[in-house]
């Protein structure tokens, strides 16, 4: 009723009160515009994926001669060929590397985040700022020194970290720790303090409080940061390409696809797209199912700020 002073706004006052909406646009028009806006956003997000999907199904030379993605012949040939090139190994390697990185990163980050959020600690603000600074660490700064350290370790101990899972997992953990800590701190801070106080009154030790009271309550936050670490590790290209460039036993999906070489005379467009579909579809399903958790994690910093 506060719109009474301005008659032109009365019509729309019930629908949405958000920012730039012209007060004198008719109801149906503003509705259509909103719907159109949503369509633009959805098309933006999906059209390269649709292109990728259709191209992966087009067989022979048609994908190279006719840009219209709805012109066949269509077949699954590209998918068969990509498995003949052992793409399944790349999928397995990515799963193992990302899984291990997540499994190591999250428990370590949870401990640190709990200490920062809840335990008495000197210089908490400094530590949090340091974590934020560390999230900006450029991965390329690790490439030459780690490469050399790996060579050095091999000459000293005979353990080869180049072309190995550990050679990738170890730096992934280090690179994802700061962001995970940052996200987890915001989740731990959201748990009501009364529950801990209650635990203390009941005589629980700090460790018991962490394990029995805090961790179960923080499970959604822990899951969220686990998802984000996992996606980071499946996405990482630079370190994987530097430390495990060719060996199919350890090569991850981004390296397989990003460095795909033509086999024979044919332009490999269909095969590259088939491999892209095979890795994108599970990740997209993963993202759609866990959408709420992911959004909460990605925006944890922004809302706090």
């Amino acid at each position: 009723m506060n719109t009474a002073t301005d008659p032109s706004t009365r019509k729309t006052s019930g629908a949405g009160q958000e920012p730039p909406r012209s007060s004198n646009t008719p109801y149906w028009l503003s509705n259509t515009l909103r719907l159109l806006g949503m369509v633009v956003v959805i098309v933006w997000c999906l059209f390269p994926f649709v292109w990728m999907f259709m191209t992966s199904l087009r067989s022979g030379a048609i994908a190279l001669t006719n840009p219209n993605i709805f012109v066949g012949p269509f077949s699954l040939d590209n998918f068969i060929q990509i498995f003949e090139l052992d793409f399944q190994f790349a999928l397995r390697n990515s799963l193992v590397v990302a899984g291990l990185a997540t499994l190591i990163c999250i428990p370590v980050a949870s401990l640190a985040a709990y200490a920062i959020a809840r335990l008495p600690l000197k210089g908490r603000a400094v530590i949090l700022t340091l974590a934020l600074v560390a999230t900006m660490f450029p991965p390329v700064a690790l490439v030459p020194p780690l490469y050399q350290m790996y060579q050095q370790i091999q000459t000293w101990t005979g353990i080869s970290l180049l072309n190995s899972y550990s050679g990738m997992v170890i730096p992934y953990v280090a690179l994802t720790l700061p962001l995970s800590i940052f996200i987890l701190v915001t989740f731990f801070s959201g748990i009501p303090r009364e529950l801990e106080e209650q635990g203390k009154i009941d005589g629980a030790t700090p460790w018991q409080i962490f394990l029995r009271i805090i961790l179960p309550l923080a499970a959604p936050g822990v899951g969220t940061s686990a998802i984000i670490v996992f996606v980071y590790a499946t996405n990482e290209f630079l370190l994987a390409f530097s430390f495990a460039p060719r060996d199919l036993n350890v090569q991850t999906v981004p390296v397989f696809i990003g460095t795909f070489q033509r086999v024979g005379y044919e332009n490999p467009i269909g095969q590259v797209m088939a491999a892209s579909v095979l890795v994108s579809v599970p990740l997209i399903i993963f993202a759609l199912v866990l959408q709420r958790r992911i959004t909460a994690g990605l925006t944890a910093g922004a809302v706090k700020g």
Binding site: V279, S280, I284, A287
Partner: peptide
């Protein structure tokens, strides 16, 4: 829309790069 907007984010960059290059 909130779900679909995650699609570009979750597709690995190297994969997106190949798609756009082609």
């Amino acid at each position: 829309t909130r779900a679909i907007i995650l699609v570009p984010w979750v597709i690995p960059t190297a994969v997106a790069a190949q798609v756009w290059r082609y």
